[in-house]
């Protein structure tokens, strides 16, 4: 019996010392394996005097049970501490950068164009487009600017080598295209986004190519009050609610009355800063009631129909929005610029 006690102490001490799975397995084989010391003891029972056998057998079985339980407990503890060590080793610096999928970005002009399209779509304006290369007739004459008209000086024009064919200087010829395609006896509500071209030195503030979005609404009861309403709605949606707007008299040969719309400066909120040239106002679009001659040229009777038109520059809007100082970035295709947006 004394042997049993010694074996127990020795085994438990050995178990406590086994710190990993290999040591545990060695211990298990040594004590609880088929040739292990505990089974050896049990196997030795028949050699004992019969009187000792039951007591010894009981004690040996108890020892086997105790050691098995101790082993399970120890194995679990070792497994746990192993897992804990593994998890501890998995620990990371969470401030390391993540694995980022490579996604492309939207060009800032297209971003603004999508915004504009969306705002006007909600007001029932649909997108209608027309060519970049245009006739003098559509770009000027039918818009109430006969050849030699002084107002033509407002648009520096690129002429092509084909007489009478020019690069459109504005999206306004789209008004005639739209009226002729969608009219004559139906109301119209369209916006006409597109690229325009001007014979202008390229500088930080002026480009030879830029987008414009023209708008046109024609109906039997369309008024200048409606025009103001649409502009106010648009400005509040694009620049945020609560904008102040200012409407100034202006001149475009294809609208009468004509108007220029200003919004309170989005940077200084009207206090005056370099962006608004200390006026507190930013010009956002030119507009007006469609000139009767233009309505007639589009196939509408100006005595029965009236309409308004407006035009704005998405690049300018984008520049104000993102604080872009130089318009030349837009078509320079420098990814270091483009990747800052969208």
């Amino acid at each position: 019996m004394h042997d049993l006690q010694r074996l127990r102490d020795q085994a438990l001490a050995g178990l406590a010392a086994a710190g990993d799975e290999t040591a545990l397995e060695a211990w298990r084989i040594q004590y609880l394996g088929r040739k292990g010391q505990v089974l050896e003891l049990l196997r030795a029972i028949p050699d004992l005097p019969a009187a000792e056998r039951p007591a010894f057998g009981q004690a040996a079985n108890a020892l086997k049970g105790e050691l098995s339980a101790a082993f399970d407990e120890r194995a679990q503890a070792v497994a746990q501490s192993k897992l804990a060590a593994e998890l501890a080793a998995e620990g990371v610096d969470v401030t390391l950068p993540g694995r980022r999928p490579q996604l492309g970005r939207l060009h800032p002009s297209n971003q603004t164009l999508r915004e504009i399209n969306g705002i006007f779509a909600a007001m029932g304006f649909q997108v209608y487009t027309s060519p970049d290369v245009e006739t003098d007739e559509l770009n000027f004459e039918l818009l109430n600017m006969p050849p030699g008209h002084p107002a033509r000086d407002m648009w520096d024009t690129f002429y092509t080598t084909t007489p009478g064919v020019i690069m459109r200087t504005h999206t306004s010829p789209g008004q005639i295209h739209a009226m002729r395609a969608l009219g004559p006896d139906k109301p119209i509500r369209v916006i006409l986004p597109g690229m325009c071209y001007r014979y202008e030195q390229v500088t930080a503030r002026s480009e030879m190519m830029f987008h414009q979005v023209e708008g046109l609404a024609i109906g039997r009861r369309i008024t200048m009050a409606d025009l103001k309403g649409v502009i106010v709605e648009f400005a509040n949606q694009l620049y945020g609610a609560g904008r102040r707007l200012r409407f100034r008299c202006s001149h475009f040969p294809f609208t009468e009355p004509s108007v220029e719309a200003d919004v309170d400066c989005i940077l200084c909120r009207g206090k005056g800063c370099a962006i608004c040239k200390y006026t507190g106002w930013l010009e956002i679009m030119g507009a007006g009631m469609v000139h009767p001659t233009v309505l007639r040229n589009g196939g509408y009777d100006p005595a029965e129909w009236s309409g308004f038109a407006f035009g704005m520059g998405p690049e300018r809007i984008t520049m104000l929005k993102h604080g872009i100082s130089d318009i030349r970035y837009f078509f320079g295709n420098d990814v270091r610029f483009l990747e800052q947006f969208g």
Binding site: G124, A217, R221, A225, D226, K228, F247, E256, S258, H291
Partner: peptide, 30 residues
């Protein structure tokens, strides 16, 4: 033309005096 005079009237009154309304004309086919 009359539109020219309408502009004169509007700009002397002031464009800010013109009301701001939302179109109540028929919505064109979408």
């Amino acid at each position: 033309i009359p539109a020219d005079l309408i502009e004169e009237v509007a700009r002397v009154i002031g464009y800010d005096q013109i009301p701001t309304t939302l179109m109540d004309d028929a919505l064109p086919p979408q």
